[in-house]
Computed example of a mutant assay.
Amino acid sequence: MSPKLAPTRPYQPLLLRLLHGGTALALFAALFTAYWTYDTYDGRWGGITLPTYRPIEALHGTFGLWTLLIFPAFVIYAFHRGQRRLLQPDSFQKLTQGSKPIWWYTLNRGGNTLALVALAFALFSGKMMDETWLPRGILTAGWYYAHLISWLVMVGAIALHLLLNAKVGGTPLLLSMFTPQFRDQDSPRHWPTHLSQQWAAVQQGNWLQWFQPMTTMLALEIMILVSMVLAWVLPLLK
């Protein structure tokens, strides 16, 4: 175990850092290769003229697939153990309290939530595309336009996410996502026990309590997870 953190330093749970970091790495690679793909095969709205690399579409799809594999676990964590970082039932009421710190914290939670929704939109629209469209010069398909829009929304959501986290926590909060230190209760040696306890709860039917009561945020979580399932199933039915 790493040395104990100073009590005044922001702390992020180890599992959050791993899921957030894995998703972020795959996502940034997917975003960069998405632009490179656009620059190679499209470029109708301008660009910076990157070197032409024809296999870039397949490489972008690979990074998108990695993101899709990690993202559902991150969503489940975010909407449960990390729920306090997302929109709350009274968030819209707090947004009326301008010039107060709670306004910025609430806006930050909204930005975090928006980033999750934007990523779900990007992953789903990407899976609805055919990887042969762009190499064949098919640039007017509806799902291609949807994926282009999702790329722009995702870039904006990430920028907002970073700016708002910097606003509410400054550099220490941003750096807390990269520290290798962790507390004893976050140690990976406890994870098998936690998983067995969760599985035992599922076997006993306690999972039904996850949907009670049906809140707006729970409905949003279900919609995101269902969209990820459909992202795998619908292409098989084409």
Rank of each mutant, 00 (worst) to 15 (best):
M1F: 10
R9E: 15
R9N: 10
P10I: 07
Q12K: 14
H20N: 07
A26R: 03
A30S: 13
L31E: 03
L31T: 05
Y38R: 08
G46D: 06
G46M: 04
G46E: 10
T49P: 01
L50Q: 07
T52P: 02
R54I: 15
R54M: 14
F63R: 06
L65G: 05
T67Q: 12
L68H: 12
I70Q: 04
A73Q: 05
R84N: 11
R85Y: 13
P89E: 07
S91H: 09
Q93Y: 08
G98A: 15
G98D: 10
G98E: 14
K100F: 14
K100M: 15
L116P: 00
L119H: 02
F121Y: 13
G126I: 04
K127I: 01
M128S: 04
G137F: 01
I138G: 03
A141Q: 15
G142W: 12
Y145G: 09
L148R: 15
W151L: 07
M154N: 03
G156I: 04
A157E: 01
L164D: 02
A166M: 13
K167E: 12
F178D: 01
F178L: 15
T179K: 08
F182Y: 15
D184S: 11
Q185F: 11
H190S: 07
W191M: 04
P192H: 08
P192V: 05
T193R: 15
H194G: 05
H194S: 11
Q197L: 12
A200N: 14
A200V: 08
V202G: 08
G205K: 05
N206D: 13
Q212D: 08
M214C: 07
M223Y: 10
M228T: 03
L230K: 04
A231C: 07
V233R: 09
P235Q: 14
